[in-house]
Design a protein around this nucleic acid. Sequence first.
DNA 1: CGATTAGGTTAGTGTTTACTAACTTTGCGG
DNA 2: CCGCAAAGTTAGTAAACACTAACCTAATCG
Lengths: 192, 192
Amino acid sequence: MEFSKRQIEIINAATDLIGEKGLKNLTTKNLAAKIGFSEPALYRHFKSKTAIIQAVLMFYKQQMKVGIEALHKSNNSGAEKIQKLMEFQFKHFAEKPAVVMVIFSETSFQHEETLSEIVLSLLNQKKQSIENIIQLGQKDQSIRPDFNSSQLADIIMGSMRFTILRWRLNNFDFNLIKEGNALCKTIGAILK
Amino acid sequence: MEFSKRQIEIINAATDLIGEKGLKNLTTKNLAAKIGFSEPALYRHFKSKTAIIQAVLMFYKQQMKVGIEALHKSNNSGAEKIQKLMEFQFKHFAEKPAVVMVIFSETSFQHEETLSEIVLSLLNQKKQSIENIIQLGQKDQSIRPDFNSSQLADIIMGSMRFTILRWRLNNFDFNLIKEGNALCKTIGAILK
DNA sequence: CGATTAGGTTAGTGTTTACTAACTTTGCGG
DNA sequence: CCGCAAAGTTAGTAAACACTAACCTAATCG
């Protein structure tokens, strides 16, 4: 998936709009206004609004993949990698709250087959990376081996998502990084 | 919050509509059609569509409260109560997938102050009950005392929500109760 | 028994939505 | 500097939306 400059501009504007007031705020009118040109111009770069949302998700998926791959290359133990991954994610969200909204908009796409599929693949990609790290950690003995890696991945991803959801519902007004670190430590203790 | 018969009828129909195709499927037109009368009739029972969604959430909140209170009265240990609570929730969702959709629609309400508040209170209510049970379990020594109860609650609620989200994104086509039980056991082991 | 009211109807309103038709401008390669 | 395509414009459209006005009916109750 390659995007032109203008397309990336549109993707960022769309992300911001969702970030500000949720998916409902992403209208062709608002989007055009945000970028500073007229509505029909959007259609020179994307064939439909759905294609734009699709691009937003793909863009985010790509970003996440790059971040996780970088983590994988480090020389840390499995347990340490999990810590780093959690830190990375919390930091990412704290810096770009708009992305948080996009993630949670996931659940509003059920009526759009193509979007649902991307969301599922996004989630699976992330879960798979975490499972891989856990299995690695179970081999290098930094993570206790008696837990199922898939379930541990559910627990890790779930607790992160939930913390982020709480943050969002509280209008982003507690320190996510701090709460994230605390969660991180508890998860670390559980994995030992 | 007391609802008339007709209001409960509307609440159920609205829940079903959201369950079928998400929040976007909840239009006044669809709702009226589902119940079998005309659109304007809706406005004899609720003053606006927002009020209907509000009622759906309040109704669900009430239901949940009743379920959790029943649990609290039992003579089980804290650890056992957590198990029961998780079973109860997974069963509830497996039986009424529509409610799942409503829960995850939470995240689509950010533009509506009043709805966001209800969602937050709903989440807090649930989290508080779980925290209470954990603290109880830490006193009766069925749950290890060296973890922060708030974080454990995040982990429990988060992993449940995530499992349910996966179930939904997979079109409800794995056995939620089975996966729920597996998660339950792992959580049980963690708490010990 | 007459008045009031709760709860239904048909018809329609203004607004917002995603998107298109048709035209114009701009920038670039030969 | 010509031709042409890419990328912008204005003006508009049909459909869907939440909601209202005006009217009707039947039950309740003093």
